[in-house]
Design a protein around this nucleic acid. Structure first.
Lengths: 192, 192
DNA sequence: CTATTTCCGATACTCATAGTATCTGATATG
DNA sequence: CATATCAGATACTATGAGTATCGGAAATAG
């Protein structure tokens, strides 16, 4: 073994930890995923070596930053009707893409998911958690008889999450929430 | 001026052009977007300088390769019913993601769209062309009274294109085509 | 045919940046 | 007090894009 868990000697300074993590988060929001290690160290007001003492690779550092970033809670709507609740969920999902800086960052993160499976995992988990937290909406709707009880809820959520991600990633115009809700609830078939 | 359009002197060898483009396409399919210029030159059996004579930057080279790759035609189904045609379109869209190599490449290309707007443009145009070519399906369906005449067809196509891209990008399981068609046509609302 | 221009392959160079190694001094533990 | 490890600073290594140059080949102008 090269080293034991170590109990003697100077301990890592928590203030330095915090300065680095905060600098990464800052740079992520300001400039996206593209940052050099020198910039992180400088922005944190810390030695370059201290960054590498905390993260073996740049990727590890960014993954930690992304994990912080994606760990955001969302409110569960309860408007009384499925259409109202669903609209709120769609609007919340769209909100990220209406802020230019957040949209650019989201594009880059989604993009990184295409090259790094671990990032894809982070995003997947974060989206899944987020969506699962809206399950209450659909449970209530099924009880009220507004939603087919045999609905594939993952399909339902992924249809609009996918639509928004797809349009956002490719820089297409974002959809109107009401149109989305109507399509999801009643479909495109002519009524007859 | 440093040079005129040039009419004298040795002309660029079309065989070298072809060898390079073919090598790029080859490497794209074999290993995705990650290739060094040395590899391209070696794989083409050509000098490194000849690659840079054709493309000012690696990005330009990859964009040309991607343009070749994305320029693929798709058949327009005509099964007689909207459900049948739509199912075929969905199945065709899913097909790419069922081939491991193509799926990996698609992930990388979608990913690159998140960092390079020009790639996003390529993908957007390619998808738009592809989808627009299926307009005939929806026109016929409207005539037959199977589809609401006021349908937002971009919303319809982007809903399933987005679903598939989203699931594929994040490595989630791909949906069942019949479920997708049913959801798109009739929605999730309880009938009553 | 000859001179000129531009291509070809090869090679060496510059530059940016991730990651490693080392040094001096500070600090915590035994 | 002795030792291990951290902090900051700095220098080094390695990779790969893009540039510069060279000797030779091929095409064109005259």
């Amino acid at each position: 073994m090269s080293r034991s868990p170590s109990s003697r000697g100077r301990r890592p300074d928590p203030a330095v930890d915090a300065k680095i993590r905060s600098a990464v988060l800052d740079l992520l929001l300001q400039r996206g995923l593209e940052m050099t290690m020198d910039e992180v160290a400088a922005h944190a007001g810390v030695g370059r070596a201290s960054v590498f003492r905390r993260y073996a690779t740049k990727r590890d550092m960014l993954l930690d930053g992304l994990a912080q970033l994606l760990d955001i809670q969302v409110a569960i709507p309860d408007t009384g009707s499925l259409a109202g609740d669903l609209r709120q969920v769609v609007v919340d999902t769209l909100a990220i893409w209406h802020d230019d800086r957040l949209a650019a960052l989201s594009r880059q993160i989604l993009g990184e998911s295409g090259r790094d499976p671990v990032v894809a995992d982070l995003v997947r988990t974060s989206m899944r958690d987020r969506m699962a937290r809206t399950w209450a909406v659909y449970d209530r709707a099924i009880e009220r008889g507004e939603l087919r009880p045999d609905s594939d809820l993952w399909l339902l959520t992924d249809l609009f999450a996918g639509l928004v991600a797809y349009r956002g990633l490719l820089g297409l115009g974002l959809p109107d929430p009401d149109e989305v809700v109507r399509s999801l609830l009643y479909g495109f078939a002519a009524t007859g």
